[in-house]
Design a protein around this nucleic acid. Structure first.
Lengths: 224, 224
DNA sequence: AGATTGTATGATGTATACAAAATACAGGAG
DNA sequence: CTCCTGTATTTTGTATACATCATACAATCT
């Protein structure tokens, strides 16, 4: 594997957190592939730290569902089956509905403005052809909605669930032909929130998630 | 504090897992109270292990939401405000609905039988006046339902959410006068599942959770 | 008296050493 | 040739040492 993992040391956080973020990002971006072993000594030397922060970061990844460890045999990047993905999706749809419903009720004018900016930024990013940037803009759009729900635990959960699909979803965003639909859906979601039309927003967000689900499941089916 | 924490060493699991379970149980049973500091050296000597497994266990508690750590200042048992509890409840109700709906569709005859046993066991346990036993029987009843939903990730999430309320809920179960209503509600849930009447079951489980919520919120309000 | 700083103490953060278990592989028996 | 077994190597599990940072308290200065 090429050594693309690099610690972002400018933050003065404990190393375990820096390592955690680094590994998570590596997993989400596909640099660490599902099933790949996470060996402590190897990671430690690659990241230039000792085993201790690596171990603690792995414990954290484990509870996020991004890594699986077998006692005395070490950790590996979590694999997802189609069933796993469907399970995650069921939960995500359900919590997404909740978040959207809450956001419809609670979204302030400033948040709506921020959402509009995120909408435009996403539209713009699709012209860049930079998948990572597009994914980031998409995350920000949805995050703005989730944040308006004013429930930090829900935000954390949704981010976590999204993460678990994220690394399978990058392929989806490589397909340029889907951009117009994505943009249109974002627009509809924005309109619905502006009008506080819960049912409309829920309908579109569900469609939005299900579209991704189909593609992600295809990707998983291929790799099996 | 009296030293009630004791490692259950018969399991041949890594110490971090044993410590994790021990600490979690301690928190849920109220031996470790919200706000209490989790000092590594102290815990290490109390449990007779070194700091390493303690630290890893704390990282795990942290992501379960049962502990909060401030860098360079250490960890403490998580406190919950009323808002936190409401946030958790919103999520729990939503996922509980999903679980119940799925269970209605998927529950097999054997699982229904198991549920009936759990129902009777709960009824019986209320006569024991042993709060821990009652709580355990209640957990098993709901777990049987959640398991029938056939979505392991949902099961994990719901267990985690329940845990976060659990330690505030023991008080609720000390009040003998609520047992008849609890038993009646369990019976209604069972009946609904047997008839596959989704709406009925959802209605009752929501009521069931909301009843607890009221009490838990009162407990939190008192302690603040 | 109040504020500030210096020092002692104790806690966490990180690295490393050693033990125990798992794995890989080679060599020999059947 | 296949299977088994013993050994070497690798990897994880745990303990511990040392560095760093936070806190408390006392002494000093204003």
């Amino acid at each position: 594997m090429t050594d693309q993992l690099e610690l972002n040391m400018n933050a003065c956080l404990p190393l375990r957190d820096v390592v955690f973020r680094t590994l998570r990002e590596g997993i989400l971006k596909g640099e660490l592939k599902p099933g790949e072993r996470l060996m402590e000594l190897q990671l430690a030397s690659r990241l230039g730290v000792s085993r201790t922060p690596i171990r603690e970061a792995i414990r954290m990844l484990e509870l996020e569902g991004l890594a699986v460890t077998i006692p005395r045999r070490g950790a590996m990047v979590a694999k997802m089956t189609e069933k796993d993905m469907e399970d995650v999706l069921q939960i995500r749809r359900c919590l997404d509905d909740l978040a959207v419903r809450l956001s419809c009720e609670k979204m302030t004018q400033e948040q709506l403005k921020a959402l509009y900016l995120a909408l435009k930024k996403f539209e713009e990013s699709t012209r860049s052809r930079d998948v990572k940037q597009i994914a980031q803009a998409d995350v920000e759009f949805h995050d703005t909605i989730y944040k308006a729900a004013d429930n930090p635990k829900l935000l954390t959960l949704l981010n976590n669930l999204r993460e678990q699909m994220y690394r399978y979803r990058l392929e989806y965003l490589k397909d340029v032909s889907v951009y117009p639909e994505l943009i249109a859906e974002h627009q509809e979601i924005y309109d619905g929130l502006a009008r506080k039309d819960k049912e409309q927003v829920i309908r579109i967000t569900n469609k939005h998630i299900m579209n991704q689900a189909i593609v992600v499941k295809n990707i998983i089916r291929e790799q099996e």
